[in-house]
């Protein structure tokens, strides 16, 4: 498990979390490269089925931020 690198799908709200992730870039804050962001217009858009689908496809974690 030492070299385990999880793949994490992140559903980010366009108006806050996605904007926050953009600002982290402007500030050059460094963080692990494991997340794959998906922009949605609101975290309310995230259907539980999307999360199930992500796990089914083999992702190790799902982040919903908004």
């Amino acid at each position: 498990m030492a070299d385990f690198e999880p793949k994490i799908v992140a559903f980010l709200c366009n108006w806050c979390a996605y904007a926050g992730a953009d600002l982290a870039g402007v500030s050059r804050l460094q963080y692990p490269s494991n997340i794959r962001p998906i922009r949605v217009m609101c975290s309310g858009r995230v259907d539980p089925l999307f999360i199930v689908k992500a796990f089914k496809e083999g992702c190790d974690g799902v982040l919903v931020a908004g």
Partner: peptide, 14 residues
Amino acid sequence: ANIRNQCSWVHSND
């Protein structure tokens, strides 16, 4: 595809 703000800038060490 956001490969700057959410990629190159935040993983510039790797």
